[in-house]
Amino acid sequence: QTIHNGDQTYHYDNPEEAIKVAQKLAKIYNLTVTVKGNTVQVH
Rank of each mutant, 00 (worst) to 15 (best):
Gln1Ser: 12
Gln1Glu: 10
Gln1Leu: 12
Gln1Met: 13
Gln1Asp: 10
Gln1Phe: 11
Gln1Tyr: 07
Gln1Asn: 10
Gln1Pro: 12
Gln1Ile: 13
Gln1Val: 12
Thr2Ala: 12
Thr2Tyr: 12
Thr2Pro: 10
Thr2Cys: 15
Thr2Asn: 11
Thr2Trp: 13
Thr2Glu: 12
Thr2Val: 11
Thr2His: 13
Ile3Asn: 11
Ile3Glu: 10
Ile3Met: 11
Ile3Ser: 11
Ile3His: 12
Ile3Tyr: 08
Ile3Cys: 15
Ile3Leu: 12
Ile3Gln: 10
His4Thr: 08
His4Ala: 09
His4Asn: 08
His4Phe: 13
His4Met: 10
His4Gly: 09
His4Lys: 08
His4Ser: 09
His4Ile: 10
Asn5Ser: 12
Asn5Pro: 11
Asn5Tyr: 13
Asn5Gly: 10
Asn5Asp: 10
Asn5Trp: 14
Asn5His: 13
Asn5Met: 13
Asn5Thr: 11
Asn5Arg: 13
Asn5Ile: 14
Asn5Phe: 14
Gly6His: 14
Gly6Arg: 13
Gly6Asp: 08
Gly6Asn: 10
Gly6Lys: 11
Gly6Ile: 10
Gly6Val: 10
Gly6Leu: 12
Gly6Tyr: 13
Gly6Glu: 09
Gly6Pro: 09
Gly6Met: 11
Gly6Phe: 13
Asp7Met: 15
Asp7Phe: 15
Asp7Arg: 13
Asp7Val: 15
Asp7Gln: 11
Asp7His: 15
Asp7Ser: 14
Gln8Ser: 10
Gln8Gly: 07
Gln8Asp: 07
Gln8Ile: 14
Gln8Trp: 15
Gln8Val: 14
Gln8Phe: 14
Gln8Tyr: 14
Gln8Cys: 15
Gln8Ala: 12
Thr9Val: 14
Thr9Tyr: 15
Thr9Trp: 14
Thr9Leu: 14
Thr9Gln: 06
Thr9Arg: 05
Thr9Pro: 02
Thr9His: 06
Thr9Cys: 15
Thr9Ser: 06
Tyr10Met: 04
Tyr10His: 03
Tyr10Ile: 04
Tyr10Val: 02
Tyr10Trp: 09
Tyr10Cys: 13
Tyr10Gly: 02
Tyr10Ala: 02
Tyr10Asn: 01
Tyr10Gln: 02
Tyr10Ser: 02
Tyr10Leu: 08
His11Phe: 13
His11Met: 09
His11Pro: 02
His11Ile: 14
His11Tyr: 14
His11Arg: 09
His11Ala: 06
His11Ser: 09
Tyr12Met: 05
Tyr12Trp: 03
Tyr12Phe: 15
Tyr12Leu: 07
Tyr12Val: 03
Tyr12His: 02
Asp13Gln: 11
Asp13Arg: 14
Asp13Met: 09
Asp13Gly: 08
Asp13Cys: 14
Asp13Ser: 14
Asp13Trp: 06
Asn14Asp: 08
Asn14Glu: 03
Asn14Tyr: 04
Asn14Ser: 15
Asn14Gly: 04
Asn14Thr: 15
Asn14Phe: 04
Asn14Ala: 04
Pro15Glu: 13
Pro15Thr: 06
Pro15Tyr: 09
Pro15Gly: 04
Pro15His: 14
Pro15Asn: 09
Glu16Ile: 07
Glu16Asn: 06
Glu16Ala: 10
Glu16Ser: 06
Glu16Leu: 08
Glu16Lys: 07
Glu16Phe: 07
Glu16Met: 07
Glu16Cys: 11
Glu16Gly: 06
Glu16Tyr: 09
Glu16Arg: 08
Glu16Gln: 08
Glu17Asn: 04
Glu17Cys: 11
Glu17Val: 11
Glu17Ile: 14
Glu17Pro: 00
Glu17Arg: 06
Glu17Gln: 12
Glu17Trp: 08
Ala18Tyr: 02
Ala18Phe: 03
Ala18Asp: 00
Ala18Cys: 11
Ala18Met: 02
Ala18Leu: 03
Ala18Gly: 01
Ala18Gln: 01
Ala18Asn: 00
Ile19Asn: 09
Ile19Ser: 07
Ile19Val: 08
Ile19Tyr: 13
Ile19His: 10
Ile19Leu: 13
Ile19Trp: 14
Ile19Met: 13
Ile19Pro: 00
Ile19Glu: 09
Ile19Ala: 10
Ile19Gln: 13
Lys20His: 06
Lys20Pro: 01
Lys20Glu: 08
Lys20Val: 05
Lys20Trp: 13
Lys20Phe: 12
Lys20Ile: 08
Lys20Met: 10
Val21Trp: 15
Val21Pro: 00
Val21Arg: 05
Val21Lys: 04
Val21Gln: 11
Val21Met: 15
Val21Ala: 15
Ala22Asp: 00
Ala22Asn: 00
Ala22Gln: 02
Ala22Phe: 05
Ala22Gly: 05
Ala22Val: 02
Ala22Ile: 04
Ala22Lys: 01
Ala22Trp: 09
Ala22Tyr: 04
Ala22Glu: 00
Gln23Trp: 09
Gln23Val: 09
Gln23Ala: 12
Gln23Leu: 14
Gln23Met: 13
Gln23Glu: 11
Gln23His: 09
Gln23Gly: 05
Gln23Asn: 08
Gln23Ser: 07
Lys24Asn: 07
Lys24Arg: 14
Lys24Ala: 13
Lys24Trp: 15
Lys24Pro: 00
Lys24Gly: 04
Lys24Ile: 15
Lys24Thr: 11
Leu25Cys: 06
Leu25Asp: 00
Leu25Trp: 08
Leu25Met: 05
Leu25Asn: 00
Leu25Arg: 00
Leu25Ser: 00
Ala26Met: 14
Ala26Thr: 08
Ala26Arg: 15
Ala26Trp: 07
Ala26His: 06
Ala26Ser: 12
Ala26Glu: 09
Ala26Gly: 05
Ala26Val: 09
Ala26Lys: 13
Ala26Pro: 01
Lys27Thr: 10
Lys27Ala: 12
Lys27Asp: 06
Lys27His: 08
Lys27Val: 07
Lys27Phe: 12
Lys27Ile: 09
Lys27Asn: 08
Lys27Gln: 12
Lys27Ser: 10
Lys27Gly: 06
Lys27Tyr: 12
Lys27Leu: 14
Ile28Asn: 06
Ile28Arg: 09
Ile28Ala: 04
Ile28Val: 08
Ile28Pro: 01
Ile28Met: 12
Ile28Tyr: 14
Ile28His: 08
Ile28Leu: 13
Tyr29Gln: 06
Tyr29Met: 05
Tyr29Asp: 04
Tyr29Ser: 06
Tyr29Phe: 10
Tyr29Lys: 11
Tyr29Pro: 14
Tyr29Gly: 06
Tyr29Cys: 15
Tyr29Asn: 05
Tyr29His: 08
Asn30Tyr: 11
Asn30Val: 03
Asn30Gly: 15
Asn30Phe: 11
Asn30Trp: 14
Asn30Ser: 07
Leu31Ser: 03
Leu31His: 09
Leu31Ala: 06
Leu31Asp: 01
Leu31Trp: 10
Leu31Arg: 03
Leu31Asn: 02
Leu31Thr: 05
Leu31Pro: 00
Leu31Lys: 04
Thr32Pro: 05
Thr32Phe: 10
Thr32Leu: 11
Thr32Gly: 03
Thr32Val: 13
Thr32Arg: 07
Thr32Ser: 09
Thr32Glu: 07
Thr32Lys: 09
Val33Arg: 00
Val33Thr: 03
Val33Leu: 03
Val33Trp: 01
Val33Cys: 05
Val33Met: 02
Val33Tyr: 01
Val33Ala: 02
Val33Ile: 08
Thr34Leu: 06
Thr34Gly: 01
Thr34Ile: 08
Thr34Cys: 12
Thr34Asn: 03
Thr34Tyr: 06
Thr34Gln: 04
Thr34Trp: 05
Thr34Arg: 04
Thr34Glu: 05
Thr34Ser: 08
Thr34Val: 08
Val35His: 02
Val35Trp: 02
Val35Met: 02
Val35Cys: 04
Val35Thr: 02
Val35Ile: 06
Val35Ala: 02
Val35Gly: 00
Val35Gln: 03
Val35Glu: 01
Val35Tyr: 03
Lys36Glu: 10
Lys36Asp: 10
Lys36Ile: 14
Lys36Leu: 13
Lys36Met: 13
Lys36Thr: 11
Gly37Asn: 04
Gly37His: 03
Gly37Trp: 04
Gly37Asp: 06
Gly37Ala: 04
Gly37Pro: 00
Gly37Glu: 04
Gly37Ile: 03
Asn38Lys: 05
Asn38Val: 05
Asn38Asp: 03
Asn38Thr: 07
Asn38Ser: 10
Asn38Phe: 04
Asn38Leu: 05
Asn38Arg: 05
Thr39Cys: 14
Thr39Ser: 07
Thr39Gln: 06
Thr39Asn: 04
Thr39Pro: 01
Thr39Leu: 06
Thr39Gly: 02
Thr39Arg: 04
Val40Cys: 05
Val40Met: 03
Val40Thr: 01
Val40Pro: 00
Val40Asn: 00
Val40Glu: 00
Val40Tyr: 01
Val40Gln: 00
Val40Phe: 02
Gln41Val: 15
Gln41Tyr: 15
Gln41Arg: 13
Gln41Trp: 14
Gln41Pro: 00
Gln41Phe: 15
Gln41Thr: 15
Gln41Ala: 05
Gln41Gly: 02
Gln41Asn: 07
Val42Ala: 02
Val42Gln: 01
Val42Asp: 00
Val42Arg: 01
Val42Met: 02
Val42Asn: 00
Val42Phe: 03
Val42Glu: 01
Val42Ser: 01
Val42Trp: 03
Val42Ile: 11
Val42Cys: 09
His43Ile: 08
His43Ser: 06
His43Asn: 04
His43Trp: 11
His43Glu: 03
His43Gln: 05
His43Cys: 13
His43Gly: 03
His43Lys: 07
His43Ala: 04
His43Phe: 12
